[in-house]
Each structure stands twice: as C-alpha cells, then as structure tokens.
C-alpha cells in the first residue's frame, strides 16, 4: 500500500469516526420545546432526566421533549440555575439511554462537535475544536467555576445540546446564553455535579457572606506585619447577612479566608461553593491597621432562582 492511499484512507476513516460519534451521542440528544416557535436541545444524563439550557425554558406548562421518533413527551421542570444556564427536566417514560461522558476533561485543541436537535427532531452537527477552557467567570446568576469555549458553530436551537469528542462522549453542555451569544459549554463534570442538587431540590446552593467589596492595595506600614499588599475593602454589608451578624464592619479589609489570602471578589466567591453553606469559616480582616480574626457561618445566597 502506498503512502498516498494511507493518507486518503485515514481521512475517510476520520470522517466515518466523526459521523459515528455524532450518531452515538445523538441518541441521547433531545429536542426541548420550552418557548414559542424556537425549540432548543437537551442531553439525557440519567434515566428520565434531561439537562437543558435554562434560558430556553420560558414556560413550565406545556413543556415537552422530543426524541428522534415517537410522540412528544411531557416534561416537568425540576430545577434551574441561572449561574450555569442549566435546567433539569424530568421526562417520565423517556426510554433513552443516558449520554456517555468523556473520561478525560476537555483539552484545548482537541476535536469537538456541537450536536443538537433544534427543529423537526432532526439531529444537526457542526465541527471545531476546544478553543479555550476558562473560569471562574461571572454570569447572569453568579460565578461559574469553569467553561469550555469552542469554535464549532452553535446553530439556533443548539443550546442545551452536547459538545462531544471524536468518540461521541460528552465534553460539556452547550449554551450561547452565558456570554453574549458565544458558543460555550459547561464541562460535563461540573454540569453533572450541578444537576444533582437541581434534580433533588430545584436549585444549586451557593455560599454567601453578604459583603460587597473592592480590591485595594495596602500601604507597607498598614499590613499588620503580614507582608501582603492586597486585600478586599468591605464597602457594603447586606442586611441580615452572615457578615453583618459576625460583626464585620464597613471599611474592614478582608485579607484571608480559612487561612488563604483573598485578593479579588471573584476568587472569594469561587471558594464559597454550596458545600460551605451552614459551615463556619474563619476570616481575617485589617481593622485600623490591626489584624482581627472573625468566625462566621456561611449562608445560602438569596435570589437563587426566578
């Protein structure tokens, strides 16, 4: 066999593999009818449970899901999370096998296919690569730990569909609803983890201290001997908040959380995941040039859902 044949055969083999991947993953991709005339997509992640795009669910009644064949199935919205733009739907009678999850996290540069079932139940796909992996990032509802960016085309109705690898395993849940229409995906490990509280209690618990802050540089003489020049100046204390109850004051400069330096508000939020709700954390603040240690009980961030 000549080398010439080798390379053209390998292109055909790659092409077949990509089509196989779309077919395999596509079995777990459903059409979600949650707004007028503009269906979106969803991924079956557990028996009778579908992950969908929160922004594409505009109604709770007459919510239906359609697979490649069979009648539309009534779906029930069991949870939604603005931060990740994810919603969980329960679809009794949905006989679809859950999607296969990629065993490795997405890597920048790897092949990625966007797969959706946007209209007429028809499976559609586009190809690109994993362009970037980023986060934490501020979204509509709060801080999202991680996201995948892709250059695969997100056709209208692809939100809630899958970003898959070349073997048909799901790398993430697609959405254009997180950042100005850009094609992003919530990584599978994060999406599946968020889906669990969504299915159980309807929302994702997130920790809350109740402070508003801005980063400041601390002059050398006012660092209380710590030798660390940055912190978070507390400029707002929410009523009834854990911070207010603990005795923190406006003008305190937050410098550590559980012993770790705190330099910006986004990192602080990222470290207050739902698992911290109800637990005690120790913070240190600079107050009048003196280091003060305060214990407080992390609250549940209010306004968790619409």
């Amino acid at each position: 066999m000549t080398q010439v044949t080798d390379t053209s055969d390998s292109l055909s083999a790659l092409s077949d593999q990509l089509a196989d991947a779309v077919e395999r993953a596509g079995r777990a991709v459903v059409q979600v009818n949650g707004r007028p005339r503009r269906p979106s997509s969803g991924v079956v992640y557990a028996p009778t449970l579908v992950l969908a795009a929160e922004h594409a669910i505009e109604r709770e009644d007459e919510l239906t899901v359609e697979t490649a064949s069979g009648p539309p199935l009534a779906a029930q919205l069991v949870g939604r999370d603005l931060t990740s733009d994810l919603a969980v739907l329960r679809v009794p009678g949905l006989g679809t096998e859950p999607a296969q999850v990629a065993s490795m996290p997405a890597r920048v540069g790897q092949f990625a296919l966007a797969v959706g079932r946007p209209a007429g139940r028809e499976l559609m796909a586009s190809i690109g690569i994993v362009s970037a992996i980023g986060g934490p990032v501020r979204t509509r509802g709060g801080m999202l730990d991680q996201y995948i960016r892709t250059d695969a085309t997100p056709y209208p109705g692809f939100s809630g569909g899958g970003l898959i690898d070349a073997r048909g395993a799901v790398l993430g849940i697609l959405t254009t609803g997180l950042a100005g229409g850009a094609a992003l995906a919530v990584p599978t490990s994060l999406a599946w983890r968020l889906a669990e509280p969504l299915a159980r209690q309807g929302y994702v618990p997130r920790g809350w201290l109740g402070i508003g802050s801005q980063p400041v540089r601390i002059p050398a003489g006012q660092q209380a001997g710590r030798g660390h020049a940055t912190g978070l100046l507390i400029v707002e204390l929410a009523p009834e908040s854990p911070a207010l109850r603990s005795g923190l004051l406006l003008g305190d400069i937050l410098v550590t959380l559980n012993g770790q330096a705190v330099d910006d508000g986004e990192a602080l939020q990222a470290r207050l995941g739902g698992e911290h709700v109800g637990r005690t954390v120790v913070v240190q603040v600079l107050r009048g040039g003196t280091l003060v240690t305060v214990e407080l009980t992390v609250g549940q961030r209010p306004g968790r859902a619409r």
Binding site: A19, E23, A125, I127
Partner: peptide, 14 residues
C-alpha cells in the same frame, strides 16, 4: 469529476 452518492451522507462526516 468523480460524482458520489449523496444518499450515503451521514451527519458529522467531513
């Protein structure tokens, strides 16, 4: 040109 069969096309192929 070599003309292929479009009926054989699959979603996802190159």
């Amino acid at each position: 040109a070599p003309i292929g069969r479009s009926a054989r096309l699959r979603v996802g192929e190159l």
